[in-house]
Design a protein around this nucleic acid. Structure first.
Ligand code: MN
Ligand code: MN
Ligand code: ZN
Ligand code: ZN
Lengths: 135, 135
DNA sequence: GATATAATTAATAAAAATTATTATTTAGGA
DNA sequence: TCCTAAATAATAATTTTTATTAATTATATC
Protein backbone atom coordinates (compact mmCIF):
# COMPACT_ATOMS: atom_id res chain seq x y z
CA UNK A 1 0.00 0.00 0.00
CA UNK A 2 0.95 3.61 -0.41
CA UNK A 3 2.96 4.14 2.76
CA UNK A 4 2.79 7.91 2.48
CA UNK A 5 -0.96 7.97 2.17
CA UNK A 6 -1.47 5.35 4.88
CA UNK A 7 0.61 7.30 7.35
CA UNK A 8 -1.21 10.45 6.44
CA UNK A 9 -4.55 8.83 7.25
CA UNK A 10 -3.25 7.52 10.58
CA UNK A 11 -1.80 10.87 11.54
CA UNK A 12 -5.14 12.48 10.93
CA UNK A 13 -6.99 9.91 12.99
CA UNK A 14 -8.85 8.29 10.12
CA UNK A 15 -9.24 4.57 9.65
CA UNK A 16 -7.10 3.21 6.87
CA UNK A 17 -9.56 1.68 4.41
CA UNK A 18 -8.66 0.54 0.92
CA UNK A 19 -11.19 3.03 -0.40
CA UNK A 20 -9.48 5.96 1.26
CA UNK A 21 -6.07 4.83 0.16
CA UNK A 22 -7.37 4.47 -3.38
CA UNK A 23 -8.99 7.90 -3.36
CA UNK A 24 -5.92 9.62 -2.03
CA UNK A 25 -3.66 7.76 -4.42
CA UNK A 26 -5.88 8.74 -7.32
CA UNK A 27 -5.68 12.37 -6.33
CA UNK A 28 -1.95 12.15 -5.80
CA UNK A 29 -1.53 10.63 -9.23
CA UNK A 30 -3.58 13.31 -10.96
CA UNK A 31 -2.38 16.21 -8.85
CA UNK A 32 -5.76 17.89 -8.99
CA UNK A 33 -9.01 16.10 -9.79
CA UNK A 34 -12.72 16.64 -9.52
CA UNK A 35 -15.18 14.11 -8.11
CA UNK A 36 -15.73 12.32 -11.40
CA UNK A 37 -12.06 12.08 -12.22
CA UNK A 38 -11.35 10.72 -8.75
CA UNK A 39 -14.15 8.20 -9.07
CA UNK A 40 -13.04 7.02 -12.50
CA UNK A 41 -9.41 6.73 -11.51
CA UNK A 42 -10.28 5.03 -8.23
CA UNK A 43 -12.44 2.45 -9.98
CA UNK A 44 -9.49 1.19 -11.99
CA UNK A 45 -7.96 0.04 -8.70
CA UNK A 46 -11.17 -0.75 -6.86
CA UNK A 47 -13.96 -1.47 -9.36
CA UNK A 48 -16.64 -1.94 -6.70
CA UNK A 49 -16.10 1.47 -5.17
CA UNK A 50 -19.28 3.46 -4.80
CA UNK A 51 -19.58 7.07 -5.88
CA UNK A 52 -21.27 7.86 -2.57
CA UNK A 53 -18.14 6.61 -0.84
CA UNK A 54 -16.07 9.05 -2.84
CA UNK A 55 -18.35 11.92 -1.87
CA UNK A 56 -18.41 10.95 1.78
CA UNK A 57 -14.67 10.57 1.98
CA UNK A 58 -13.88 13.75 0.13
CA UNK A 59 -15.92 15.52 2.79
CA UNK A 60 -14.17 13.88 5.72
CA UNK A 61 -10.75 14.18 4.15
CA UNK A 62 -11.33 17.90 3.76
CA UNK A 63 -12.61 18.22 7.31
CA UNK A 64 -9.46 16.60 8.58
CA UNK A 65 -7.37 18.87 6.31
CA UNK A 66 -5.90 15.99 4.41
CA UNK A 67 -7.39 17.37 1.24
CA UNK A 68 -7.97 20.86 -0.02
CA UNK A 69 -10.76 22.01 -2.27
CA UNK A 70 -9.94 24.27 -5.18
CA UNK A 71 -13.10 26.05 -6.32
CA UNK A 72 -12.84 27.21 -9.92
CA UNK A 73 -14.99 29.48 -12.05
CA UNK A 74 -16.96 27.55 -14.65
CA UNK A 75 -15.79 24.11 -13.51
CA UNK A 76 -16.52 21.64 -10.79
CA UNK A 77 -14.27 21.97 -7.79
CA UNK A 78 -11.03 20.07 -7.86
CA UNK A 79 -9.30 18.46 -4.91
CA UNK A 80 -5.63 18.12 -4.08
CA UNK A 81 -3.55 16.69 -1.28
CA UNK A 82 -2.71 19.33 1.30
CA UNK A 83 0.73 20.66 0.63
CA UNK A 84 2.56 23.86 1.31
CA UNK A 85 0.71 26.99 0.16
CA UNK A 86 0.98 27.66 -3.54
CA UNK A 87 -0.91 29.35 -6.35
CA UNK A 88 -2.71 28.11 -9.42
CA UNK A 89 -2.70 28.70 -13.14
CA UNK A 90 -6.05 27.82 -14.64
CA UNK A 91 -6.56 27.65 -18.38
CA UNK A 92 -9.88 29.05 -19.55
CA UNK A 93 -9.66 27.07 -22.75
CA UNK A 94 -8.70 23.52 -21.79
CA UNK A 95 -9.56 23.77 -18.11
CA UNK A 96 -6.15 22.54 -17.03
CA UNK A 97 -4.99 23.59 -13.59
CA UNK A 98 -1.40 23.65 -12.49
CA UNK A 99 0.54 24.67 -9.43
CA UNK A 100 2.94 27.55 -9.27
CA UNK A 101 5.08 28.37 -6.33
CA UNK A 102 3.82 31.48 -4.60
CA UNK A 103 7.35 32.43 -3.65
CA UNK A 104 8.41 35.48 -5.68
CA UNK A 105 5.01 35.42 -7.44
CA UNK A 106 3.29 37.84 -5.12
CA UNK A 107 3.69 39.60 -1.80
CA UNK A 108 0.78 40.35 0.47
CA UNK A 109 0.31 43.41 2.65
CA UNK A 110 -2.42 42.38 5.01
CA UNK A 111 -1.33 44.59 7.88
CA UNK A 112 -4.39 46.69 8.37
CA UNK A 113 -7.02 44.14 7.49
CA UNK A 114 -9.48 43.52 10.30
CA UNK A 115 -9.76 39.86 9.45
CA UNK A 116 -8.20 36.68 10.83
CA UNK A 117 -6.51 35.21 7.79
CA UNK A 118 -6.46 31.43 7.60
CA UNK A 119 -5.73 30.95 3.97
CA UNK A 120 -4.67 33.03 1.00
CA UNK A 121 -5.56 31.79 -2.43
CA UNK A 122 -4.22 33.26 -5.65
CA UNK A 123 -5.70 31.91 -8.85
CA UNK A 124 -4.57 33.10 -12.23
CA UNK A 125 -6.95 32.48 -15.10
CA UNK A 126 -5.84 32.70 -18.70
CA UNK A 127 -4.57 30.64 -21.62
CA UNK A 128 -1.97 27.99 -20.97
CA UNK A 129 1.12 27.42 -23.04
CA UNK A 130 -0.32 24.29 -24.67
CA UNK A 131 -3.43 26.10 -25.84
CA UNK A 132 -1.42 29.11 -26.95
CA UNK A 133 0.55 26.93 -29.37
CA UNK A 134 -2.34 24.97 -30.77
CA UNK A 135 -4.82 27.70 -31.48
CA UNK B 1 -36.23 51.25 -14.31
CA UNK B 2 -32.63 51.05 -13.25
CA UNK B 3 -31.01 53.28 -15.85
CA UNK B 4 -27.54 52.00 -15.07
CA UNK B 5 -28.52 48.39 -15.51
CA UNK B 6 -30.60 49.08 -18.61
CA UNK B 7 -27.73 50.85 -20.32
CA UNK B 8 -25.40 48.08 -19.34
CA UNK B 9 -27.64 45.52 -21.04
CA UNK B 10 -27.89 47.63 -24.19
CA UNK B 11 -24.17 48.18 -24.34
CA UNK B 12 -23.62 44.46 -24.19
CA UNK B 13 -26.14 43.79 -26.93
CA UNK B 14 -28.69 42.05 -24.76
CA UNK B 15 -32.41 42.71 -24.93
CA UNK B 16 -33.71 44.68 -22.00
CA UNK B 17 -36.23 42.43 -20.34
CA UNK B 18 -37.76 43.06 -16.93
CA UNK B 19 -36.33 39.74 -15.81
CA UNK B 20 -32.80 40.79 -16.64
CA UNK B 21 -33.22 44.15 -15.05
CA UNK B 22 -34.59 42.49 -11.95
CA UNK B 23 -31.76 39.97 -11.79
CA UNK B 24 -29.07 42.59 -12.20
CA UNK B 25 -30.73 44.88 -9.69
CA UNK B 26 -30.94 42.05 -7.21
CA UNK B 27 -27.26 41.34 -7.59
CA UNK B 28 -26.39 45.01 -7.37
CA UNK B 29 -28.41 45.33 -4.19
CA UNK B 30 -26.74 42.34 -2.54
CA UNK B 31 -23.27 42.96 -3.89
CA UNK B 32 -22.58 39.25 -4.20
CA UNK B 33 -25.26 36.59 -4.35
CA UNK B 34 -25.65 32.96 -5.28
CA UNK B 35 -28.39 31.60 -7.53
CA UNK B 36 -30.88 31.09 -4.73
CA UNK B 37 -30.33 34.49 -3.22
CA UNK B 38 -30.74 36.09 -6.62
CA UNK B 39 -33.91 34.14 -7.26
CA UNK B 40 -35.42 34.98 -3.89
CA UNK B 41 -34.56 38.64 -4.15
CA UNK B 42 -35.78 38.84 -7.75
CA UNK B 43 -39.09 37.26 -6.86
CA UNK B 44 -39.93 40.09 -4.51
CA UNK B 45 -39.98 42.38 -7.55
CA UNK B 46 -41.19 39.87 -10.09
CA UNK B 47 -43.07 37.05 -8.35
CA UNK B 48 -43.68 35.06 -11.52
CA UNK B 49 -40.02 34.83 -12.41
CA UNK B 50 -38.88 31.31 -13.14
CA UNK B 51 -35.76 29.81 -11.63
CA UNK B 52 -34.80 28.51 -15.05
CA UNK B 53 -34.82 32.09 -16.27
CA UNK B 54 -32.38 33.02 -13.56
CA UNK B 55 -30.05 30.20 -14.54
CA UNK B 56 -30.27 30.99 -18.24
CA UNK B 57 -29.62 34.66 -17.71
CA UNK B 58 -26.77 34.21 -15.30
CA UNK B 59 -25.11 32.17 -18.03
CA UNK B 60 -25.61 34.75 -20.76
CA UNK B 61 -24.76 37.65 -18.49
CA UNK B 62 -21.48 35.96 -17.67
CA UNK B 63 -20.79 35.18 -21.32
CA UNK B 64 -21.25 38.84 -22.16
CA UNK B 65 -19.03 39.80 -19.21
CA UNK B 66 -21.75 41.74 -17.48
CA UNK B 67 -21.46 39.44 -14.52
CA UNK B 68 -18.57 37.70 -12.90
CA UNK B 69 -18.62 34.37 -11.11
CA UNK B 70 -16.86 34.04 -7.78
CA UNK B 71 -16.22 30.38 -7.05
CA UNK B 72 -15.79 29.74 -3.34
CA UNK B 73 -14.62 26.74 -1.36
CA UNK B 74 -17.46 25.04 0.47
CA UNK B 75 -20.19 27.32 -0.91
CA UNK B 76 -22.16 27.74 -4.06
CA UNK B 77 -20.66 30.23 -6.48
CA UNK B 78 -21.65 33.83 -6.04
CA UNK B 79 -22.14 36.39 -8.78
CA UNK B 80 -21.36 40.07 -8.89
CA UNK B 81 -21.59 42.88 -11.40
CA UNK B 82 -18.38 43.30 -13.34
CA UNK B 83 -16.36 46.07 -11.79
CA UNK B 84 -12.72 46.93 -11.58
CA UNK B 85 -10.49 44.10 -10.37
CA UNK B 86 -10.52 43.61 -6.63
CA UNK B 87 -9.97 40.92 -4.04
CA UNK B 88 -12.23 39.10 -1.61
CA UNK B 89 -12.41 38.38 2.07
CA UNK B 90 -14.41 35.24 2.70
CA UNK B 91 -15.47 34.23 6.20
CA UNK B 92 -15.22 30.52 6.86
CA UNK B 93 -17.67 30.81 9.73
CA UNK B 94 -20.60 32.88 8.44
CA UNK B 95 -19.85 32.58 4.75
CA UNK B 96 -19.90 36.32 4.21
CA UNK B 97 -17.91 37.62 1.28
CA UNK B 98 -16.72 41.17 0.94
CA UNK B 99 -14.64 43.17 -1.47
CA UNK B 100 -11.26 44.63 -0.70
CA UNK B 101 -9.34 46.86 -2.99
CA UNK B 102 -6.39 45.01 -4.44
CA UNK B 103 -4.36 48.21 -4.50
CA UNK B 104 -1.65 48.02 -1.84
CA UNK B 105 -2.93 44.57 -0.86
CA UNK B 106 -0.61 42.58 -3.08
CA UNK B 107 1.83 42.97 -5.94
CA UNK B 108 2.24 40.36 -8.61
CA UNK B 109 5.47 39.36 -10.35
CA UNK B 110 4.27 37.43 -13.35
CA UNK B 111 7.24 38.25 -15.57
CA UNK B 112 8.53 34.82 -16.32
CA UNK B 113 5.24 32.95 -16.40
CA UNK B 114 4.59 31.23 -19.70
CA UNK B 115 0.88 31.89 -19.51
CA UNK B 116 -1.43 34.51 -21.03
CA UNK B 117 -3.01 36.06 -17.96
CA UNK B 118 -6.61 37.18 -18.35
CA UNK B 119 -7.61 37.47 -14.75
CA UNK B 120 -5.97 37.40 -11.36
CA UNK B 121 -8.07 36.41 -8.40
CA UNK B 122 -6.99 36.77 -4.81
CA UNK B 123 -9.29 35.26 -2.21
CA UNK B 124 -8.55 35.47 1.48
CA UNK B 125 -10.33 32.96 3.69
CA UNK B 126 -10.57 33.38 7.42
CA UNK B 127 -12.76 34.73 10.19
CA UNK B 128 -14.47 38.06 9.69
CA UNK B 129 -14.63 40.82 12.24
CA UNK B 130 -18.29 40.13 13.07
CA UNK B 131 -17.63 36.47 13.84
CA UNK B 132 -14.49 37.31 15.77
CA UNK B 133 -16.51 39.43 18.19
CA UNK B 134 -19.40 37.04 18.64
CA UNK B 135 -17.58 33.81 19.26
C1' DG C 1 -48.11 53.74 -33.67
C1' DA C 2 -48.83 49.13 -35.93
C1' DT C 3 -46.45 44.74 -37.62
C1' DA C 4 -43.18 41.06 -38.13
C1' DT C 5 -39.92 38.19 -36.12
C1' DA C 6 -36.39 36.36 -33.51
C1' DA C 7 -35.35 36.20 -28.76
C1' DT C 8 -37.01 35.46 -24.25
C1' DT C 9 -39.89 33.58 -20.81
C1' DA C 10 -42.76 30.41 -17.69
C1' DA C 11 -43.87 26.06 -16.97
C1' DT C 12 -42.48 21.78 -16.92
C1' DA C 13 -39.84 17.70 -17.74
C1' DA C 14 -35.45 15.61 -17.81
C1' DA C 15 -30.89 15.05 -16.43
C1' DA C 16 -27.06 15.55 -13.41
C1' DA C 17 -25.13 16.09 -8.94
C1' DT C 18 -25.25 15.39 -4.13
C1' DT C 19 -26.89 13.51 0.15
C1' DA C 20 -29.52 10.16 3.04
C1' DT C 21 -30.75 5.48 4.36
C1' DT C 22 -29.78 0.89 5.60
C1' DA C 23 -28.10 -3.70 5.71
C1' DT C 24 -23.60 -5.59 5.53
C1' DT C 25 -18.74 -5.56 6.05
C1' DT C 26 -14.47 -4.25 8.16
C1' DA C 27 -10.57 -1.78 10.75
C1' DG C 28 -8.48 -1.51 14.82
C1' DG C 29 -8.45 -1.93 19.70
C1' DA C 30 -9.18 -5.10 23.74
C1' DT D 1 -9.53 -13.90 18.15
C1' DC D 2 -13.49 -11.17 19.31
C1' DC D 3 -16.21 -6.79 19.72
C1' DT D 4 -17.83 -2.70 18.26
C1' DA D 5 -18.02 1.56 16.17
C1' DA D 6 -17.08 3.17 11.79
C1' DA D 7 -17.13 2.59 6.95
C1' DT D 8 -18.96 0.74 2.72
C1' DA D 9 -22.05 -0.64 -1.31
C1' DA D 10 -26.29 -0.33 -2.98
C1' DT D 11 -29.92 2.24 -3.49
C1' DA D 12 -33.35 5.80 -2.78
C1' DA D 13 -34.29 10.49 -2.13
C1' DT D 14 -33.23 15.10 -2.63
C1' DT D 15 -31.23 19.00 -4.70
C1' DT D 16 -29.31 21.39 -8.49
C1' DT D 17 -28.99 22.36 -13.22
C1' DT D 18 -30.30 21.97 -18.01
C1' DA D 19 -33.53 20.99 -21.87
C1' DT D 20 -38.01 21.41 -24.11
C1' DT D 21 -41.88 23.85 -25.78
C1' DA D 22 -45.75 26.82 -26.33
C1' DA D 23 -46.74 31.48 -25.33
C1' DT D 24 -45.13 36.09 -24.79
C1' DT D 25 -42.40 40.11 -25.73
C1' DA D 26 -38.52 43.42 -27.15
C1' DT D 27 -37.07 45.74 -30.86
C1' DA D 28 -36.31 46.75 -35.64
C1' DT D 29 -38.77 48.32 -39.69
C1' DC D 30 -42.23 50.33 -41.63
MN1 MN E 1 -2.54 22.92 -6.25
MN1 MN F 1 -16.46 41.27 -5.45
ZN1 ZN G 1 -5.10 25.25 -21.96
ZN1 ZN H 1 -18.07 35.76 9.59
Amino acid sequence: MQMKVVNSLKEHGLKVTPQRVTILSAIEKKGHANIDEIYQEAKTTNPTMSLATVYKNITSLIETKLLKEVAINNQKSKYELSKKPHSHLICKKCGNLEDIDSHNLFTLNSDKLDFDIEEVELNIYGICNQCKKSN
